[in-house]
């Protein structure tokens, strides 16, 4: 019983990471119908930005004297700054790589390839610039372990799970209640009608990238706190997995991204609980493949009908 609950908490924690990344894929896809293959690497960049921001506030670079700020203050300062800087990275990619192609009216596929290549550049550029030595994320807050009977939970895990839930509610509010959010949903259906509502298309697209990359930065920060070793390829596998989760949920749908993310978290933890952990990827992907086989456009996806 205790093991079960412990596993559920772990699954929720992993699911939260997947969901936070998947939501970035889904947001961009919902607006541009573009698989932003670079998103996993934006998550990685987010984790690195988190590292540099946090060490900056801790006084590593001599601008702020060491120990001047408490761990909690550093955390509170670092999170928004990380999200801001990460969204700058996302928006930059959009501006210099995707938008020129879109303005030329290039085929969707070319944008996808560009995204894939941008991801590679982020990964390998990072490796080339910072070297292969891994970064160790500093411990900002004291780890607290809460125990309830035989179940123990760290404060970090709880924070991660609650963050994911809060992000979901915030996004749900944005896309259902705000004008720009509704425009985001409408744009994939008719990109010519939305400007008539008084919102320029590019504003919506930039806003989407800000949201998606910002949350990837947040996920990067949380991930770095939970698993403090950073390396340039950390975004690749988790990014691909989150992407598959987004598709299984039904890409373009925010509920789908969260459902898919948590589903993947549960499947992975479930597999590890029963089988040897080396089988994790194999079985997790098989289950996701079966879901896609059964519902080809994902759990929340709407099947497109061909009209002739």
């Amino acid at each position: 019983m205790e093991i079960l609950i412990q596993n559920i908490i772990n699954a929720l924690q992993f699911g939260s990471f997947y969901a936070l990344i998947a939501v970035g894929y889904t947001l961009v896809y919902g607006v541009l119908l573009l698989i932003n293959f670079a998103h996993g690497d934006i998550f990685m960049v987010g984790a690195y930005i988190a590292f540099f921001v946090a060490t900056f506030f801790l006084g590593e670079y001599g601008i702020i004297s060491p120990g001047a700020l408490s761990g909690m203050t550093v955390l509170m300062l670092s999170i928004p700054l990380t999200m801001l800087l990460t969204s700058c990275v996302g928006v930059t990619l959009e501006r210099i790589a995707y938008r020129p192609l879109r303005n030329k009216g290039a085929h969707r596929l070319y944008v996808v390839i560009t995204a894939l290549m941008c991801g590679l550049i982020l990964e390998n550029g990072n490796l080339a610039l910072l070297g292969a030595s891994r970064k160790k994320f500093p411990e900002l807050i004291d780890k607290a372990v809460w125990t309830l009977g035989d179940i123990s939970v760290t404060n970090l895990k709880v924070a991660v799970i609650f963050t994911a839930i809060a992000v979901f509610m915030l996004l749900h509010f944005i896309v259902t209640k705000t004008k720009i959010g509704m425009a985001m949903r409408g744009i994939s259906y008719d990109k010519f009608a939305i400007p008539l509502m008084g919102i320029p298309v590019n504003t919506i697209i930039v806003f989407t990238f800000i949201l998606g990359s910002g949350f990837a930065g947040l996920a990067g920060f949380m991930f770095a706190m939970s698993y403090p070793i950073l390396e340039p390829y950390m975004g690749a596998l988790i990014g691909w997995k989150a992407f598959i989760a987004a598709v299984v949920g039904g890409i373009g749908d925010i509920r789908g991204a969260f459902l898919g993310g948590f589903l993947l978290g549960f499947i992975e933890i479930g597999v590890v609980a029963v089988f040897p952990s080396t089988l994790r990827d194999l079985l997790a992907f098989s289950v996701l493949l079966l879901i896609l086989w059964w519902k080809p456009t994902g759990l929340f996806g709407v099947a497109k009908t061909t009209k002739i």
Binding site: A97, M117, C118, L120, I121, E123, N124, G125, L127
Partner: peptide, 12 residues
């Protein structure tokens, strides 16, 4: 490592 920065750049 720069190889895998340059090749994607070429393709972009």
């Amino acid at each position: 490592v720069w190889k895998w920065v340059i090749i994607p750049l070429v393709l972009i």
